[in-house]
Design a binder for these strands. Sequence first.
DNA 1: TTCGCCTTGTATGTACACGAACATTCGTAC
DNA 2: GTACGAATGTTCGTGTACATACAAGGCGAA
Lengths: 158, 158
Amino acid sequence: MASVDRMSDARGETAPDEGRASEYDVTEQIGHLLRRAHQRATAVFQETLDDPGMTPMQLAALMRLVDAGPVSQNRLGRETAMDPATIQGVIRRLEERGLIERRPDPSDRRRTLLSASEAGGRLAQALIPSAEKVSARTLDPLSESERRALIALLKKIA
Amino acid sequence: MASVDRMSDARGETAPDEGRASEYDVTEQIGHLLRRAHQRATAVFQETLDDPGMTPMQLAALMRLVDAGPVSQNRLGRETAMDPATIQGVIRRLEERGLIERRPDPSDRRRTLLSASEAGGRLAQALIPSAEKVSARTLDPLSESERRALIALLKKIA
DNA sequence: TTCGCCTTGTATGTACACGAACATTCGTAC
DNA sequence: GTACGAATGTTCGTGTACATACAAGGCGAA
């Protein structure tokens, strides 16, 4: 978290910005900027959320489960933009913490139905204010109209 | 890469968007949008770059080395926004491919000086057009002014 | 009904990403 | 000149992220 702060400098040691041979500057590429911004958003999440050990992906999955009732694992992955191979681990860790439950789907024997446990539902509800603070802090450097603009632009390229 | 495309739907199986209990929608949070956008940028990178096996981080490090001459490992990490623990693996893989070279810093025995090898320099130069195409494709859905706006906003929150 | 194709969940392997702990070395204050 | 704090690079552990391959079940067409 604090490590991100340390990574922004380019001072000292050698003269800055001399002898740029090619015309390709990594720090100007959209991919790099998206990565940096996502990096900071994750750091803010960890600093701000009232639950150490809860990760962004785990909270996303849990919140979605609380809202969207029992769903299959793959479907939950689609709704939260997670690969089937990725959501597998997220689900396993949430279950190990007793926040969600798994049971076989009676109407389709391939599927496992997921739902939030009692404790999971309570935790999700309790974390909402904290989660909203995360978003607010991440967008802190921007004005209200800039925030709306950024969100709209991100939706366009996603 | 194609998997990202499959992850955008929320149709079928149950009625969409009924019984939203809490007021927290994950897909509207800035962190989630940043993650999705970064996800797509990475997918475009892999589809577009003329070198399977080259990753965004590896290219960033290599490009920086070509431009910024010999640098220590930690410093290169700071300039490309990579954790010391992270850049370690990136450097190792680049060296295994013979694209960069490591030698001890004579003036500071803690440090390892990194520089691009001959082959690394040639590859970096050859990949520039391809890398620019990556950025262009990622920004494809946006107009020229939108692109500038997005880049400026991302720099503000990073 | 059976064949072919799709979906679902799992496992494996690679590559970030970062906290934490560590040994070595440097620089400086004393 | 020596003790102390800071910087450098490494290792370990955990958590995404995804390609690939796979077993099992569902489903429609022949």
